[in-house]
Simulated scan of single mutants.
Amino acid sequence: MAKKVVATLQKKETKNFAKVIKAVKSPETGAYSFKEEMVPVEMVKEVLASAK
């Protein structure tokens, strides 16, 4: 199964995306959770800057 996943990630369409993982703090409990997004490589800096 792992070979199939790796093979699909190597397609030309998917090479232009990056997975962004942000830690988000809950205002109610103070606990951290993680938010994952797949964004185009060109937009990584904008996505990370918007989190501040």
Rank of each mutant, 00 (worst) to 15 (best):
M38P: 07
F17N: 01
F17H: 03
P40N: 06
I21Q: 04
K22Y: 05
L9Y: 08
E13F: 13
A2C: 11
I21S: 07
V20S: 01
Y32A: 15
P40H: 06
A31R: 09
S50Q: 12
F17G: 01
V41F: 03
L9N: 08
K15W: 03
S33F: 05
S50N: 09
A2S: 14
K45M: 04
N16H: 14
G30I: 09
V44H: 01
N16T: 12
L9K: 07
M43W: 01
A23F: 07
A23V: 13
M38I: 11
K52G: 12
V20L: 00
E42T: 15
K3F: 12
K25G: 12
K11Y: 09
V24H: 03
A7G: 09
A49E: 07
K15H: 06
V6E: 07
A49G: 14
K15N: 05
L9M: 11
L9W: 07
M38V: 09
A51M: 05
E42D: 12
S50L: 11
Y32H: 15
K45H: 04
K3H: 15
V41L: 04
E13H: 12
K15Y: 03
M43D: 03
T29M: 05
Y32G: 15
V39G: 01
E13W: 08
A7D: 10
V44W: 01
V41E: 02
A31Q: 10
M1I: 14
E37N: 05
